[in-house]
Write a protein that binds this DNA or RNA. Structure first.
Length: 340
DNA sequence: AAGACGGGGTT
DNA sequence: AACCCAGTCTT
């Protein structure tokens, strides 16, 4: 590959992104966590407001976990932000507030894996650690004509090896960003812009017209579908919500919902536990598609007579705007507001 | 090595 | 509707 052509192309064509205005390892780290499995255009407004609210790692370490989740509500993969908060605390307690400077130390932090550690090493510190992400896999599998299912670790290691040998001949901070930028702007999954690609002179896929066959990515399994009865339980000025445990949507608040296909079943089940729903009224249905699941929700508005379950939280309606909720249940709240 | 984990953009 | 994305962690 022509590294010089790549770097020249990058300097001329790179986007003006907020996290490219700095080499501060804290800011590079925040951007890299946010960018995991998430499009650049989605991240930008979150990154801007997050850095404004938490300009230094100490601000994040001191912050309230719930407020952090509220700041990144809607980005998905919420576990990464609980790891992020934990890592900020570790940097304050174990590293004297200084961001770790070695690959090994970075890798020990929660939520920082081989990709993110390498991205920080190369982008923030200009050290030759190859960061191999989805863009890099696509560019190299095409440019070098590397076959094999790229969802498998064995085949990713081939890409990692090529990537590492190249960054050692390059300016790391430029090289890492240039590889990802060309994957985002030129070497796209569909309809790559090969005619304007600075690498087309040495590209295997271009010369064999194999752009659409590379990279080889195996099919994903279909999502598991689940049916819920979703309850909007209110009293005069409060709503009852349930905080998710670690498994899925961890730390976010949802309306109580029960896996069932009719409301009568739920009413009966709750009655067994001395919880009585008063006059449930059907508001509508919502479907929410996750990458690995599909939720079908029938939404009922109701009130409570007697006690509430221990794991429900009574939230003042005026405080709802401070409570982090997943998009799936932001839809439920919209339905609620439309029916007041 | 395989599965869990969100949500939005693109085609 | 299918596919993809600046991945990491657990089992």
């Amino acid at each position: 590959m022509d590294i010089h052509a790549l770097e020249t192309w990058y300097k001329k064509n790179k986007r003006d992104l907020p996290f490219r205005k700095t080499h501060d390892p804290y800011r590079i780290w925040i951007s890299e966590i946010m960018l995991q499995q998430t499009q650049v255009d989605t991240v930008i407004p979150y990154y801007e407001s997050f850095i404004k609210r938490f300009p230094h790692v100490s601000d994040l370490a001191k912050a309230d976990q719930e407020q952090v989740l509220k700041m990144i509500e809607g980005l998905g993969y919420y576990r990464r932000f609980r790891y992020m908060k934990k890592t900020a605390e570790i940097i304050m307690s174990d590293h004297n507030g200084h961001f770790p400077k070695t690959y090994k130390d970075l890798l020990e932090l929660p939520g920082i894996g081989t990709y993110t550690a390498s991205a920080i090493m190369s982008i923030a510190y200009n050290e030759p650690y190859a960061a191999t992400d989805g863009n890099v896999i696509r560019v190299f599998s095409r440019e070098e004509g590397i076959e094999g299912d790229m969802r498998k670790a064995k085949n990713k290691r081939k890409i990692q090896s090529v990537n590492q040998s190249l960054i050692e001949q390059a300016e790391p901070t430029i090289y890492t960003q240039a590889m990802m930028e060309i994957g985002a702007l030129i070497c796209t999954p569909k309809n790559p812009a090969c005619e304007t690609c600075p690498l087309n002179g040495t590209c295997f896929a271009y010369q064999h017209d194999a752009q659409m066959d590379l990279p080889d990515l195996s099919k994903r399994k279909p999502q598991k579908q689940t049916h819920y009865m979703t309850l909007i339980v209110e009293d005069e000025d409060h709503l009852f919500l349930r905080k998710q445990d670690e498994a899925m949507l961890g730390g976010l608040y949802l309306c109580p919902q029960y896996e069932a296909t009719d409301i009568e079943t739920v009413i009966q089940q709750l009655r067994q536990k001395d919880i009585f729903l008063k006059d449930p009224r059907f508001l509508g249905k919502e479907k929410h598609v996750f990458s690995h699941r599909i939720w079908h929700m029938l939404v009922y508005k109701t009130r409570l007579t007697g006690e509430k379950p221990d794991d429900w939280t009574r939230v003042n309606k005026k405080k709802l705007k401070d409570v982090p909720m997943p998009v799936a249940h932001q839809k439920i709240m919209t339905l609620f507001k439309a029916n007041r």
